[in-house]
Design a protein around this nucleic acid. Sequence first.
DNA 1: CAGGCTAGTGACAGCGACTGACACTTCACA
DNA 2: TGTGAAGTGTCAGTCGCTGTCACTAGCCTG
Lengths: 217, 217
Amino acid sequence: MITTQQSAPPAPAGLRARKKQRTRDALLRAALLLFVSQGYEETTVDEITEAVDVSQRTFFRYFVNKEEVAFAVQTLVEEHFVAALRARPAAEGPLLAMRNAVLDSWDTVGEAIAEVVPVDLYMRTYQLIESTPALLAVHLRRSAELEEQVARLIAEREGLDVEADPRPRVAVAAFCGVMRVTGRLWGRGEDTSIEAIRRLTERYLDHIGGALAADWR
Amino acid sequence: MITTQQSAPPAPAGLRARKKQRTRDALLRAALLLFVSQGYEETTVDEITEAVDVSQRTFFRYFVNKEEVAFAVQTLVEEHFVAALRARPAAEGPLLAMRNAVLDSWDTVGEAIAEVVPVDLYMRTYQLIESTPALLAVHLRRSAELEEQVARLIAEREGLDVEADPRPRVAVAAFCGVMRVTGRLWGRGEDTSIEAIRRLTERYLDHIGGALAADWR
DNA sequence: CAGGCTAGTGACAGCGACTGACACTTCACA
DNA sequence: TGTGAAGTGTCAGTCGCTGTCACTAGCCTG
């Protein structure tokens, strides 16, 4: 249903490439485990590399900085959503297409995550991102980049020019704003299941019309 | 009309306090000038402190980190907006109140800025924030904090519980999403006047209803 | 107005994130 | 099988940021 792009590397070619993949995976897993167990700021890059037994320099050859490793799985999830959005029929209006794409991707992204790290670890990482100021800041910037990408995609679907017509950006901004609220509430609540975020998403998106009415009373 | 909160310190008490204020102002101005002229990443804290002739340690006693100095004026602007929102009559619906508060504050914030740094310097700083990844990330996190504050304010106006009713957060999220788009476009365009951002704001906010319709065609 | 109090500062040492340079090992491929 | 290059370790160095401590200069009280 959803075309996963560069996820699930089907056993890379040479020995060298496989070794490389293993090192990266080991660094990623070790980093996330340390992050969620003792906190992001409290974890040094040296600790991560000692756990995997490579030099600090090697870490920075795989990840441009300490933050990036925390977002490796998130990248997967975002690619999943974009793919789901592209797959929505052209007949659907912008808001409906985005809504359905989100709900679609929640249905299938679990497996994609599990190929890299345990789903449970991803969810705890997400909560960590939401609660660590330095990571939250980066998360929001990444979301803004995704937002721009989605706006272009929506404009394309509707045959509009993003630069000329404000509606694609406005719609996507409003939509993403709501999505961020649900993400934050999910990370805060106790129920960290994928079903929970799905339900929350539906509930909040259903309110977007009413919330923008002139009068709530 | 708008009650400025802690801006415009009317000549502080003792000599000590005045000296302190002067040091802070000097650091702020020197930092912003260096940032806009040679870039944020390219400016070291040592350069800033050398320009003012204080020790590096002193810089970090006034600003918790290098980022904070870039947002000092932005803080002023945000306080201005919140004050303007509080001043809107209770009869106005949420969206209208936010819209009017933004437009109100654009009318008066210029003077408040000029008391600290030249308005021109502030505008160039804003453009720098938008175009420097590290600063943009912090900017977005700060905006999210402001958003939460505004959501609580709106809920209060409407006599609702933010935690129970999704509409305040949804409305504010959608509204702020649109505001961020205008801010980004303003920072990108050539016309960096306050009138320009005012016009852009009006134009984009007017489209929020249509953008959320089911069908644009 | 002398003398103690303390806020503000400078000097210094140290940590952690990150980078550039270079040498070395090990796989790949002719 | 030998040669090139990819991947890694080591080392030295920069920059943001922090703790500590001594010192100076406004301030306040007797």
